[in-house]
Design a protein around this nucleic acid. Structure first.
Lengths: 217, 217
DNA sequence: TTTTATATGAGTAGGAATACTTAGAAGGTT
DNA sequence: AACCTTCTAAGTATTCCTACTCATATAAAA
């Protein structure tokens, strides 16, 4: 391994930090190029050392992990951030994802998990503690809300479904009519029938519905 | 624990299956109510035993894991499915998610991870092997495509951004005008300016853009 | 056989967004 | 002082969609 992966670690618990440093530096591929016990020191380290990865405790004196992630994002620094946290809360996790944090692991995780995380992030991938992967699924699928609509979609006739499909693909009524060699008025009628069956109303209601639910049909 | 959680296990490797059974049945909360070494047997077990959880190998003789998941979905059975697989491929994972599979873990995972997975799924949550959580993030965020548009959004003036925000929230020009006590014509002009800056054209172009990119602003 | 569902087409009305032009007022920049 | 940006506003025209009603043909179902 010629080029080691530079990592900085920030955690205000000395003993935990010590354990983490030893765990990671035991891997020849990784190199700890800095340690910090508060957020401000961590931010300085990131700016000066330009590490590949920064492992940050969320709760720290001075700047917390989120403050650092925001600043990194604003300044477009290249460091990949891993959050290491005690608590398992959906809101914190979602905020972290929005800030582009690459790794999110709980402190209760096994040592192997933490190393896997650093490895994955070093390869440019995300790594999320599996106990919080449920949140991630909630983010990506729209499960609950769409359960009703899902059954409503089943009520549509084949032609109606086809038209809904094309609406989701950004086609106008005229384009759809031309494609099927039918009148735009027919398409209009189908649109209205679909609206009624799905109980949606208002301007561009169908387009909105189609865009938000195209994964369902 | 009065009511144990009933689990069936299907895997065509006897030794692995044996290990899994012992691992899980060691937890008093869990009860193995059936074992199968091929997909058809597994499907029968699910239908007869109505277990809370089915742990399925993807590659099995007869029906594979996906076939079973499809049938379970079609028949609306209440069993929660966990996939246990050797290989780490994004397509398989995405298919599994679409079929409503609750747990997805690699066989290389630690015993603790597998137990955590069963526990999470028993609680109705999802549990995804962290080494594949990257796929999940790719599903939920639209990262790459929107990188260009991200910079374009920066060109908007504060007022324009605010209006774009409200468009994404499903407000009409009139509603936006009323909210800010300005003319709808002013809002119209802002809309047009935004369209020009973002280089988007066509009917309802802004609404489409706003809905697809609301996570960016 | 009567009814129902589906697909087709049209009339009329109005709301909403896009497209393009012009223009005044307020603020800061050079 | 001249210039530029931003926000404000209006005129005019067109396209698209929604809303409601009516009508016909066909095929399936009761």
């Amino acid at each position: 391994m010629k080029n080691k992966i530079n990592i900085i670690i920030a955690d205000d618990h000395p003993i935990f930090r010590r354990g983490l440093v030893e765990l990671i530096s035991a891997i020849s591929q990784f190199s700890i190029c800095g340690e910090a016990e508060d957020g401000n020191a961590a931010m300085e380290l990131i700016q000066k050392q330009n590490p590949a990865i920064a492992i940050l405790d969320i709760n720290m004196p001075g700047m917390n992990g989120f403050d650092i992630a925001k600043k990194v994002k604003a300044q477009k620094l290249s460091v990949n951030i891993i959050f290491l946290t005690m608590y398992n809360e959906e809101e914190l996790f979602n905020k972290a994802m929005d800030l582009g944090v690459k790794g999110y692991i709980l402190k209760e995780c096994a040592a192997k998990d933490i190393l896997d995380c650093v490895q994955s992030v070093a390869e440019g991938k995300h790594y999320i503690s599996p106990v919080i992967s449920d949140y991630l699924v909630n983010r990506s699928l729209v499960l609950k809300i769409n359960e009703n609509q899902k059954s409503a979609i089943e009520k549509l006739t084949p032609t109606e479904k086809q038209i809904l499909q094309l609406i989701a693909e950004d086609k106008t009524s005229k384009e759809i009519a031309d494609k099927f060699f039918i009148s735009t008025r027919t398409v209009d009628n189908h649109r209205m029938n679909i609206c009624n069956k799905l109980s949606i109303h208002g301007s561009n209601a169908l387009l909105k519905f189609a865009l938000e639910n195209k994964h369902l049909f």
